[in-house]
Design a protein around this nucleic acid. Structure first.
Length: 213
DNA sequence: CACCAGGGTGGTT
DNA sequence: AACCACCATGGT
């Protein structure tokens, strides 16, 4: 399996520290993680700004708001009708859990399971929230990481998420490092790994079996 | 105009 | 279990 520690060093050397997640509160990170699904961060950030301006970036106020008001704030983030309802489910969950301070006391397993049970929160979003909002050592497995692993191995079939997660944890296990690791994977992916691979001249070419192609 | 963006869900085979 | 359509706006 890939030496993710070496990958990590190469990416860090190329791009520097990313200092994710840009947010003022744990709740803002949770909201941002849901809004950024299948869209760009700039559009998700605009939606977060609108929620803030309209005093909705707060668990109880978001949970109790009119869904139409939420929809209006987040329209620019796409899938606004479904995301509005999912945001309110998330907000209700936070309120019922004693706020983000209450959630911070939960074990990593309890937190991850509860998040996964919420509508609109799958494995990736649950991991992102666990890692970036609550500093838990979760591996965020997204499209960038899947493609990165696939191209490094030059395999026709993608590796299962579970095996990717285990392999990453073997080399990168603490929350601080996993935080920086995922940010670097995204930054690298946005620049050279999507949609057409340009592995031939990227900073990972020494490890990439598809270099040049 | 086509295609893509830091997914998740429900239905079909 | 592996597909598939769908959700929807904004940028290139």
């Amino acid at each position: 399996m890939t030496d993710f520690a070496q990958l990590f060093r190469l990416l860090l050397n190329e791009y520097g520290r990313q200092n994710w997640w840009p947010a003022k509160s744990a709740f803002e990170i949770m909201v941002g993680a849901l809004l950024v699904q299948r869209t760009t961060w700039t559009n998700a950030a605009k939606a977060v700004d609108r929620l803030t301006i309209n005093r909705l970036l707060h668990p109880a106020r978001l949970a109790d708001a009119e869904v139409a008001d939420v929809e209006l704030c987040i329209r620019c983030a796409g899938f606004f009708r479904t995301k509005a309802r999912r945001l309110q489910s998330l907000a209700r969950f936070v309120v019922d859990s004693g706020g983000t301070d209450g959630l911070a006391a939960w074990s990593a397993d309890e937190l991850g399971s509860a998040l996964l049970a919420l509508p609109g929160i799958g494995a990736e979003t649950a991991a992102a929230i666990s890692l970036y909002a609550f500093d838990r050592p979760a591996v965020v497995i997204d499209a960038y990481l899947r493609r990165l692993v696939q191209r490094l191995h030059a395999t026709s079939q993608p590796a299962p998420d579970a095996s990717i997660g285990e392999a990453v944890l073997t080399y990168i296990s603490d929350a601080q490092s996993l935080n920086e690791w995922h940010a670097l994977v995204v930054e690298h992916g946005k620049r050279v790994c999507l949609p057409e691979p340009r592995c031939g001249d990227c900073c990972l070419r020494s490890l990439c079996q598809t270099a040049g192609g």
